[in-house]
Design a protein around this nucleic acid. Structure first.
Length: 407
RNA sequence: GGGAGAAUUCCCGAGUGGCCAAAGGGAACAGACUGUAAAUCUGUCGUCAGUGACUUCGGUGGUUCGAAUCCACCUUCUCCCA
């Protein structure tokens, strides 16, 4: 099966500018494509991960990827599909974020001669001359059309600044620049990028009279129509310091029944034949599917070893036996513990199991907290220093386990 | 540039001088039921040294015994006119 058909079968393709041409191009390894990443945080998240996977898939099929880091566009902020303005980032933060992205991507995609290439649009966007840009590029854009673009819809009601309105032009400029300087003939991106990407192909057509293509990836939505990869605490990050491999594993282990197969198909590299096979499995094996999903994604992002550890930890915690050495844990300085012990509620705050002491107490009150396997009922319960020296296991609710001990 | 409005706790959104830590909904968290799922029901949902105190209603000042509510200025946004 060729790559285009595979992408299709996995449900990854959302929109394409010209199906026949694109199929031809990527199936024969003739695409030099780029995907842009705006440095809005200091780590990549699940949404980026899909784009990286796509890149990898296409690279394996012989196409040449260009990773575009939005060091320049990061100064503007993409309004697509957003209801509020992005906060403006300072140059220092943008630079820092770019560096973090680069580090994470290097783990995932092969860079080098004839392999993937990484460029930063700060290199060409920051030096643009306003008047020149208006004449060279601005002349080719119809404000009437831009205003009709889907990506601005929401913002037409809530307000859109001129700064953000220009994001599309910058992205189009990127495509044009990469087309001329790196021979890029295709852009990939999330489906919310569609208008911006079309703007790029238009610009290339008008300025160069040449065809360029664009294709978007289906956004990963759960059965409720919400973007996946978000938790109460925010995004699911790829940086193990921000989302530990165990948490990452648990996120996928806990997806809705209705979303498992979709996730497996879209996110993992499990061969389609095997996926077809799994599709036929009996409902009773639903948890097995979730484990496969969680394991293979954790392995992709953090490596086999971490994935195995995460799985072992999960098994240990939820089946009651086995090695729980990798349970999320917090080490506390002995000096921070009073001589006669610390209140469990305080300890929970230190371990970030509760936002405030009051909330911790309420959790205990409601019967949601166990200490070393026994339910705690006293909101003033104290954990002694000796217990902490040995390490205590705190359980919040059914699924959150945490170990605390003195360093 | 002129005129009219808006800004409320994570989000949406009530509240127009004391009865307001602030209705209602959503999200989230916990309990019951389960399969580490969903649905459903129940509870919680500003902070703390837990029947009380303290800090919140865009910002800064002011009026008042008392302000989310009134006044002034500022900031941001929306709409109408140019």
């Amino acid at each position: 099966m060729s790559i285009y058909e595979e992408l299709q079968a996995r449900g990854l393709i959302a929109q394409v500018t010209d199906e026949a041409e694109i199929r031809e191009l990527i199936n024969n390894g003739g695409a030099r494509f780029y995907i842009g990443f705006d440095p809005t945080a200091d780590s990549l998240h699940v949404g980026h991960f899909m784009a990286l996977c796509l890149m990898k898939r296409l690279q394996m099929a012989g196409n040449r990827p260009v990773v575009l880091i939005g060091g320049g566009t990061g100064y503007i902020g993409d309004p697509s599909g957003r209801s509020d303005m992005r906060s403006m980032l300072t140059p220092e933060i943008i630079q820092h974020n770019c560096d973090c992205f680069k580090k994470q991507m290097e783990r995932f995609i092969e860079f080098g001669e004839d392999k993937a290439l990484m460029v930063n649009n700060a290199d060409w966007l920051l030096d643009l001359n306003y008047i020149e840009l208006l004449r060279e590029v601005g002349a080719h854009f119809s404000v009437n059309n831009m205003l009709r673009a889907e990506c601005y819809k929401q913002r037409m009601e809530k307000g859109l600044s001129f700064l953000e309105f220009n994001y599309m032009i910058m992205q189009a400029y990127d495509f044009w620049y990469l087309h001329n300087n790196y021979g890029c003939n295709m852009e990939f991106g999330g489906d919310d990028q569609w208008s911006n990407m079309l703007a790029g192909t238009e610009l290339i057509r008008r300025k160069e009279g040449e065809d360029a293509y664009a294709m978007t990836i289906t956004l990963l939505l759960n059965s409720e129509g919400k973007k996946m990869g978000k938790t109460a605490r925010g995004a699911v990050w790829l940086d193990p310091g921000k989302t530990s491999p165990y948490e990452f594993y648990q996120y996928w282990r806990n997806v809705d029944d209705a979303d498992v197969m979709k996730c497996i198909r879209m996110l993992t590299f499990i061969p389609l034949e095997e996926i077809e096979e799994m599709e036929k499995w009996d409902d009773s094996r639903i948890n097995e599917k979730k484990e496969i999903l969680a394991y293979s994604l954790t392995a992709l992002v953090h490596g086999e070893e971490e994935a195995a550890k995460a799985k072992a930890t999960a098994t240990a915690i939820f089946s009651g036996a086995g090695d729980d050495a990798n349970m999320p844990s917090t080490e506390i300085d002995e000096a921070d513990i009073p001589e006669d012990g610390i209140q469990l509620a305080d300890l929970m705050v230190i371990c970030k199991l509760a936002e405030s002491k009051g909330k911790a107490k309420k959790l205990i009150e409601q019967g949601g907290v166990s200490l070393d396997g026994t339910k705690v009922s006293d909101i003033f319960a104290v954990v002694s220093k000796d217990m902490l020296r040995a390490s205590v296991k705190i359980q919040k609710g059914k699924k959150v386990f945490h170990k605390a001990k003195i360093r």
